[in-house]
């Protein structure tokens, strides 16, 4: 009697175990490419980079272990400090400026107007050309003598336009303006998606209560797209800490190192001077900064990001 009862029970548990095993196997089958990528191309290399930063390695001879020497060297490397400073400058200027502009653009093209789709596309498209093409065209636009920017500025009486890319004070603002121009269409599309996800009923009931436009924006739009704002702030800051291609093409770090950014300096050391260990130490510092800033934002989001 006891055995008769036991047999079906174990069969059930065995089939359940089999089913769970099959479920696990299916799940891991689907994420297998990502797992491989994690080990080989993202997660693994993070630790690889950390290890590499403890070595002196020029890719030709064997790596030599030097402990934290690379990190100790960083604060004394004037160009590193300058690159870091300029990267922070770039980030804190371009992210607020770019996001404000793209949010206003999104509000503008979120209206029910005839032909608004054309404007949406036209605002988004310029940013899709390669950074290379964009940077080269802006190189001409900024030209002190024949460029369009100064041609237009000259039309305003009393304005003496700067020489942009050859002036050490104006080269970084020039990079920032170009970057804002390039990314605003993309950010606008993401803001627009957020705006369109807001149910019109919210506005209608607020309007009946007599809310004006500013109140609608302040108390309905902003809270309801706070996650979109948060997402864009996080992604934009991470993106602008990596600023590289713009400065490579537009100014090649010049004039007088005034547009050297961290990744530009890392690139120089890693792939032109082949100081892999030192470059890794810099890359890791960049990672640490990005990580801390992102974690800080993650902590702060509870204060202002609304989830519904």
């Amino acid at each position: 009697m006891a055995t008769a009862e036991l047999a079906p029970k174990s069969a059930v548990s065995r089939s359940r175990r089999m089913r769970r095993l099959r479920e696990n196997a299916t799940g891991y089958l689907f994420i297998a490419p990502w797992i491989i990528g994690l080990v080989v191309f993202t997660g693994g290399p993070i630790f690889g980079g950390l290890a590499l930063s403890l070595f002196d390695w020029d890719t030709l001879s064997a790596p030599e272990f030097i402990g934290f020497d690379n990190f100790i060297r960083l604060p004394t490397d004037e160009r590193f400090v300058r690159s870091l400073h300029q990267t922070v400058y770039f980030t804190f200027a371009s992210v607020p400026l770019g996001l404000t502009i793209s949010f206003l653009l999104a509000l503008l093209v979120n209206q029910k107007l005839k032909g608004v789709n054309f404007f949406r596309t036209a605002y988004f498209l310029p940013g899709v050309s390669s950074v290379v093409a964009i940077a080269l065209i802006w190189g001409w636009l900024y030209d002190g003598h024949t460029g369009l920017v100064n041609f237009l500025l000259d039309l305003i009486p009393g304005v003496t336009p700067p020489l942009w890319l050859v002036d050490t004070r104006w080269s970084m603002p020039a990079v920032i303006i170009m970057s804002v121009w390039r990314t605003m269409g993309f950010d606008m599309i993401i803001f627009l998606a957020g705006l369109q996800a807001i149910a019109p009923e919210y506005y209608e009931s607020a309007r009946i209560d007599g809310a004006n436009r500013w109140q609608l924006l302040r108390h309905i739009t902003l809270p309801l797209i706070s996650f979109t704002i948060f997402f864009l702030v996080v992604v934009s800051i991470i993106g602008s800490f990596k600023v590289f291609e713009q400065t490579l093409i537009l100014t090649n770090g010049g004039p007088a190192f005034s547009t050297y950014t961290l990744v530009f300096y890392i690139y120089r050391h890693a792939f032109q001077q082949f100081n892999m260990g030192y470059a890794s130490a810099m890359a890791f510092t960049l990672f640490a900064i990005t990580f801390i800033v992102t974690m800080f934002q993650w902590r702060m989001q509870r204060r202002w990001v609304h989830y519904d």
Partner: peptide, 13 residues
């Protein structure tokens, strides 16, 4: 959150 530049060198290796 990890900038590609951080993993760039080990991936190159």
């Amino acid at each position: 959150m990890v900038p590609a530049q951080v993993t760039m060198i080990p991936v190159f290796v």
